[in-house]
């Protein structure tokens, strides 16, 4: 009716959403999932730190071709600084691949029950019969898991960036942008999960989330091979898969933000098992945002229609 009333209403609705989002954290604390997740993450980061520390201590001790392993044996001469940056980047890309995979798993496992699991076991029925819209319930729960993802990504991937910086001395050009892109990757996984959970059973949702993440990863590899071998068909398939699920695309853009400038000369030959870096493309960014938005709108429509 009046603007004040509408504002109050908006505030009330926001409060309800935040209340539901906060439940995610309360549950995590009470069920000790946050504690376990934190301890195992610390273990992972510590292992990564130890590995990086020893690798670069060795490197510092003998900064000559002997320490360059296979590259040195081939008789190639490389600038030690360049070699050092490349090694650091490789460590980092490996670590970030694992951490982004863990983040995706976390999101899939937590989020798969967001709607369908709670609808199946009868938790949701007493919530949605309160004066809340189903959209609020969906967004509240999405925000809860998204906030877990933000904290997890910043802690885990941020730690890897920091440890690499400390032990190797390598300073990636755009670490904050890389973190944002990794976050976006996780949010897209969460978006897919939200869409699936509003109509599919919990297990089917989990499988869908993981499979799409895996398909996107394989698609990225097919695209790399296609580019490497100059096979247009393979490249086109890989490209199409990025439209199906743009998660790998965001991961590779994140890597692109961390690549040493001196590596640019290697271009598309810089392929690797964990994805080749690529530059930030405005089209890909927009597509990712649209994709996430479409997932949430689709989830809201499906959830509203669903019989509980």
């Amino acid at each position: 009716m009046n603007p004040g009333g509408r504002l109050d209403d908006l505030r009330a609705r926001t409060d309800q959403m935040l209340l539901l989002a906060g439940l995610t954290w309360k549950e995590g604390v009470r069920r000790r999932t946050i504690l376990m997740g934190f301890l195992l993450t610390v273990a992972f980061v510590a292992l990564y730190g130890v590995g990086t520390y020893y690798a670069f201590r060795q490197f510092d001790a003998q900064p000559d071709s002997a320490s360059m392993g296979g590259v040195g044996a081939l008789g190639m001469t490389l600038d030690p600084d360049f070699y050092r940056d490349m090694a650091a980047y490789q460590m980092l890309s490996f670590g970030l691949f694992v951490s982004s995979f863990l983040a995706a798993m976390l999101v899939v496992f937590l989020g798969a029950g967001m709607i369908s699991g709670d609808a199946e076991n009868g938790t949701l029925q007493t919530i949605v019969t309160r004066p809340v819209d189903r959209v609020q319930v969906l967004l509240g729960r999405f925000l809860g898991y998204a906030s877990v993802l933000v904290v997890y990504t910043i802690l885990l991937s941020g730690s890897l960036l920091l440890l690499t910086r400390v032990f190797s001395g390598y300073a990636p050009p755009h670490p904050v942008q890389a973190l944002l892109l990794l976050l976006m990757q996780g949010l897209i996984v969460l978006g897919i999960v939200a869409l699936a959970t509003s109509t599919l059973p919990q297990i089917a949702t989990g499988i869908t989330g993981l499979m799409l993440f895996g398909v996107a990863f394989i698609g990225g590899i097919v695209e790399q091979i296609g580019m490497f071998l100059r096979n247009d068909t393979a490249a086109a398939i890989g490209d199409a898969v990025h439209y199906l699920a743009p998660t790998d695309s965001f991961f590779r853009m994140a890597l692109g933000r961390l690549t040493p400038g001196s590596m640019a000369v290697m271009g598309e030959f810089l392929t690797g098992p964990f994805g080749a870096p690529k530059g930030v493309e405005v089209g890909a960014l927009l597509y990712g945002l649209l994709y996430l938005g479409a997932c949430l709108v689709g989830a809201a429509v499906l959830f509203r229609r669903r019989d509980l």
Binding site: L19, T123, R130
Partner: peptide, 23 residues
């Protein structure tokens, strides 16, 4: 509801206060 399940990690009092806040 006939089939219902409340979050097992909440206390009874917290559950009622949660529903109050939703209202």
């Amino acid at each position: 509801p006939e089939q219902f399940r409340f979050p097992q990690w909440l206390t009874g009092r917290e559950l009622l206060s949660l529903h109050g806040r939703l209202m």
